[in-house]
Design a protein around this nucleic acid. Structure first.
Lengths: 141, 141
DNA sequence: ATCGGTGCAAATGATTTGCATAAGT
DNA sequence: ACTTATGCAAATCATTTGCACCGAT
C-alpha cells in the first residue's frame, strides 16, 4: 500500500503498531474510531498503548494516509482511497450510511469564488435523520 | 424576542442567567462558544455557574431558540434567526467567516432522493483555508 | 549507536451530573 | 407552596503530554 511507501520515504519507521493500524484501516475501508482501532490492535498486540494509536493516527493524517472528520463527540478516521467520502450520521439511531457521491463540487466552487475560501468538503460527517427514523416520527405525529 | 415567548409557553422560567444568555446570543448575532457566553454572563452576574450556561444552552437548543455546530474541539452556538448559517473556519489561522448563502439545497435534495436521508445542512462549520492563508502557502511553495 | 517510537501514568479541558439549596410562578 | 432552576464540586471521557526506556535502521 502507498501508505507504507510514504512513511518509508520520509524516514519514518514501520513498527508493529503502525502496521496493525494501517492493516485495519485498509481492511475495514470505512470510518473508524480510535477506540475501534485500539480494540483491533489489542487483539493482536495487547501491550500497545492507546496513546500510540492516537499518535499514529495523527502521523498518518499529516502524511495524507488518513482523513479525519468529527462525529458528535468523537473523531472518525478513514483511509484516503476515495476522493469523496461522506458519513450520513442519523441523530436518532446513530446509524452511519456511507456515501461516495460527488455532492459538493458546486459548493466548493461557490465558496471559492464568493469568499476566496477553499473548503475541505471531501470527507465529512453529515448529521440528519435516516429514512426509517423519519418514518417512525411521521407515524408518531 | 420569540425565544422568551417560547419558554413562557412551555412553563419554563425566565431567570436572570437565561435572560443574559439570550440577550448575548441576540446581541452578537454570530457564533459563540460556551466560554464566551460564560464570560459575558460573568461580567453581569459573577456568581452564575458554568453548568448553568451549558444547561441553558441545551434547553434553548431543544426549544429551537439556538442551533449548535461543532468546530474542532468546541461546540458553537448561535440563534435561529436565519435559515442558512455557515461558519467558514480557517484551519490555519482560526478565523471564522460567516456565510448565509443558500448553498446546500441541491445537496439536500440529492441525499433525500438517493439515500432517503434528511440531512441537517442549515447550520454547519465548514473547515478549509481562507484566502490570505492560501496566498501565504503559495508564496512559500 | 542513534534517534525515532512506545508504554505508562498523569494531565488536560470541554462538558455532564448529583445533590442540596434557592427562587420564579 | 410547589416545582423548576441553580451553584458547587466532583465525575466523565476523549485526547494529549512528559518522560524514561525500547527497538528499527
Amino acid at each position: 500500500m502507498s501508505c507504507f511507501v510514504t512513511l518509508k520515504e520520509k524516514g519514518l519507521r514501520l513498527t508493529r503498531p503502525r502496521q496493525l493500524i494501517l492493516d485495519y484501516i485498509h481492511e475495514r475501508g470505512d470510518h473508524l474510531t480510535a477506540e475501534e482501532i485500539l480494540n483491533y490492535v489489542h487483539e493482536k498486540s495487547p501491550r500497545v498503548n492507546k496513546s500510540t494509536v492516537y499518535r499514529t493516527l495523527e502521523l498518518l493524517e499529516k502524511n495524507g494516509c488518513v482523513f479525519t472528520s468529527r462525529a458528535n463527540d468523537r473523531t472518525l478516521y478513514h483511509h484516503t482511497e476515495h476522493k469523496h467520502h461522506y458519513h450520513l450520521l442519523c441523530q436518532r439511531c446513530g446509524k452511519i450510511i456511507e456515501c461516495q457521491e460527488d455532492l459538493f463540487t458546486p459548493v466548493e466552487q461557490s465558496l471559492a469564488s464568493q469568499y476566496g475560501f477553499s473548503p475541505d468538503l471531501d470527507h465529512m460527517v453529515i448529521n440528519g435523520v435516516c429514512e426509517s427514523c423519519r418514518h417512525k416520527e411521521m407515524r408518531r405525529a
